[in-house]
Nucleic acid binder design. Structure first.
Lengths: 210, 210
DNA sequence: TGTACATCAGTGAACGCGCGTTCACTGATGTAC
DNA sequence: TGTACATCAGTGAACGCGCGTTCACTGATGTAC
């Protein structure tokens, strides 16, 4: 194998780790399949031999895990950004829902790994029971709580947040799994779902009449 | 390999086909993973050598496809049974939703293959765009149409059916993917979701006051 | 300023594994005469 | 009623494949004296 990538200088070995993570992520996005992200494929893309990967990652699982980890961070940041800056707490929640679906559809294979994969293959850090304490979910519960405090929501915050999650997940995951179904335009579908949630879960705001 | 299974008598070779289908389905349910359903594993369970499989199935994909096919039939039958015999069309729809989730949770790995798998790996017969014309989905649209005819629903039937599907799918698939999340009791979650749909999508019936 | 040496970033070749699949075959069994 | 034969239900051994991973190594480079 001819060296396509110039060797890092002494002390800069960690550079390769970053390149490996980027390559693995690219492969995941381009091929749309976890199976295609083999150690060999990642190594080839980076321009390095397969054993080099093991200088930076204990095994394949750890590599994929770290790829997801970065994605999770971005996921949270994005939801956070889109959910803040709204005066109406219900609007903030709807904006978060929109952002959730949007992000999932932008990174379908990441979403698949994070939320559609087999539970027993999921990296430890993202095990189901930990998710509820993850900052993203906590933020959602917080946003829901604001609606509760404003007297705009019926049930308790944790339960309503769970419900919201299942609904937005439904849209996201089904669009990912069945992209060729005769869907209405995505924006229309999303707005209808959010409208349904709003009518079904929220009481009218102060400036509306019941 | 010692013959664990007595050879079928002449003319009864098709018997093995049935046994293979049953074994493959059992493996799918027990291991909970499509990957575990290898030709070798199926053959071993039946008590036959791997090449025997190829007397009845062209390749591995066809075998898995036929396993799903049978499951789809049962899926449809179950929904049909649970959805019929209701005087109120909205109640009929809610019963179908309940049955949908219940069935998915009873056969999680089948559900995974049918509705959570990669679109390009899905057997031809269940490709996304065909699904909309599948009898199960048509039946759902029909049930929704009855609600429309009774003046109980806002939007058009096809769109409302799609919406209902995404919502029930959300509950089912997330419970399958994240079984250890601190969910409320399943029945509670399901009823809350269906209530939300009812309040968000339906107008009150004639004997209720708006 | 020169040289020996430890360190670091990678390489090259090979390992065992389980997989789907193929191919030539065997031996029991029903059927024709 | 007996026998030759075609057919059918499977077997046994092997194929090539790509995979994750290991192990002994190489050669450039910074550092100590």
């Amino acid at each position: 194998m001819s060296p396509e990538r110039p060797r890092s200088r002494r002390g800069e070995g960690a550079q390769l780790k970053e390149e490996i993570l980027v390559a693995a992520e690219e492969l995941l996005l381009e091929t749309g399949s976890e199976d295609e992200v083999s150690i060999r494929a990642v190594a080839e893309r980076v321009g390095v031999t397969p054993p080099s990967i093991y200088r930076h990652f204990a095994d394949k699982g750890t590599l994929l895990f770290e790829v997801c980890d970065r994605q999770f961070d971005r996921f949270h940041e994005y939801l956070d950004a889109k959910g803040s800056g709204h005066s109406d707490p219900v609007e903030a929640l709807k904006a978060t829902g929109r952002a959730y679906i949007e992000f999932g559809l932008s990174y379908p294979e990441h979403y698949r790994i994070m939320f559609m994969g087999r539970s027993d293959l999921t990296p430890q850090q993202y095990e189901d029971h930990v998710l509820a304490e993850h900052e993203s979910f906590m933020a959602l519960v917080g946003s829901v709580q604001e609606c509760v405090d404003a007297g705009r929501i019926r049930t308790d915050a944790m339960e309503a947040a769970t419900l919201l999650w299942t609904v937005t997940h439904g849209v996201t995951s089904l669009l990912i799994a069945k992209p060729n179904f005769p869907w209405p335009p995505v924006e229309v579908l999303v707005e209808h779902v959010l409208d349904m949630v709003e009518h079904g879960l929220f009481t009218p705001g102060p400036d509306e009449t019941g």
